[in-house]
C-alpha cells in the first residue's frame, strides 16, 4: 500500500456502461434492463452523452445483485425493496432535519 497518495479516483466520478459492467460483473444488457425498469438511472440522458453512471448507481447495482442472488428476489421484489428503503432513508433524513431544529 502506498500511504498518503491521494486516492481521488473516486471523487465525483462518472463511469461508462462498459466500466460499470466490468466493476459490478453485471452484463450491459442487464444494466439496460434495470434502467428500463427504473431500478437504476444514468446521470446523463443516453441521447445526450451516452450511458454514464455515478458511484451511487454502482452501489445500487451491487445491492440489486445481492437481493437477487442472496435473497432470491425477482425484479418486482427488488423494486419494492429499493422503493421502501429509499422511502425509509427519506423519512430518516426528514426526522433528522426536524430534530435539529
Amino acid at each position: 500500500m502506498n500511504p498518503n497518495v491521494p486516492d481521488d479516483s473516486a471523487a465525483a466520478s462518472r463511469y461508462a456502461i462498459e466500466a460499470v459492467a466490468e466493476i459490478t460483473h453485471v452484463s450491459r444488457r442487464l444494466i439496460v434492463v434495470y434502467c428500463q425498469h427504473g431500478l437504476i438511472s444514468p446521470v446523463a440522458t443516453p441521447e445526450e452523452s451516452g450511458w454514464l453512471f455515478d458511484e451511487e448507481a454502482i452501489h445500487r447495482l451491487r445491492h440489486i445483485e445481492h437481493l437477487r442472488t442472496e435473497y432470491g428476489m425477482n425484479m418486482a421484489g427488488v423494486r419494492m425493496m429499493l422503493e421502501m428503503l429509499g422511502e425509509l432513508e427519506q423519512l430518516r433524513e426528514e426526522v433528522r432535519f426536524r430534530r435539529g431544529g
Binding site: 500500500m1 502506498n2 500511504p3 498518503n4 497518495v5 491521494p6 486516492d7 481521488d8 479516483s9 473516486a10 471523487a11 465525483a12 466520478s13 466493476i23 458511484e55 451511487e56 454502482i58 452501489h59 432513508e89 433524513e93
Partner: peptide, 21 residues
C-alpha cells in the same frame, strides 16, 4: 494497516456514498 487519502468533493451531501475502489 492500509493508509490512504479520500477526497471529499465540494458539495457532498448527507448520505452520499464515496467509493474507494
Amino acid at each position: 494497516t492500509h493508509s490512504f487519502t479520500v477526497r471529499i468533493p465540494a458539495g457532498a451531501t448527507d448520505g452520499r456514498r464515496i467509493r474507494v475502489p
